[in-house]
């Protein structure tokens, strides 16, 4: 029988080309038995949200190292809401200063934020948690 699998979108919105982190996380999620839809570099928030909708993912993961997170993350959340998909949890990984992280979470733009040095185990557990809460 085919059972349900957690599906996660790993996307890199914006203009930075540093995809090592995104790929490491994608592999860790795959090794944890999840299906990871990887879209590659330089995605617009519109592309990210359209992919999330078409792939019917349980969690959206955004990797942002460009410093544009205060623009990109709220935009992704807004677009999800506009498409009646506001309930899909958004996880952000990247270089996010603490006060930005707090704001993104407080305003409901991001459900979880991971900065450099986070353990893969913690990320996997968090994705599993978020997928369950959807």
């Amino acid at each position: 029988m085919r059972e349900k699998r957690i599906r996660v979108l790993i996307a890199k919105p914006g203009l930075d080309g540093h995809d090592r982190g995104a790929k490491v996380v994608a592999r860790a999620l795959r090794d944890a038995g999840m299906e990871v839809i990887y879209t590659g570099l330089h995605q617009t928030p519109e592309q990210v949200v359209e992919a999330a909708l078409q792939e019917d993912v349980d969690v959206v993961g955004l990797s942002i190292l460009s410093g544009a997170h205060m623009t990109l993350v709220p935009r992704v959340r807004e677009l999800l809401r506009e498409n009646q998909a506001g309930e899909i949890p958004v996880l952000v990984g990247g270089i996010i200063p603490e006060e930005d992280a707090r704001e993104l979470k407080e305003k409901g733009y991001a459900d979880a934020i991971f900065t450099p040095g986070s353990s893969l185990e913690a990320i996997v557990a968090c994705v599993r948690d978020l997928a369950g809460s959807k």
Binding site: R30, A32, V36, I37, G40, A51, E55
Partner: peptide, 20 residues
């Protein structure tokens, strides 16, 4: 993966022209 059942599905990377 036959071991974990997980997968990295990357075909979309090459189908960007029609993403929207």
């Amino acid at each position: 993966s036959p071991f974990t059942g997980g997968a990295i599905l990357g075909d979309r990377i090459r189908m960007q022209e029609h993403a929207l």
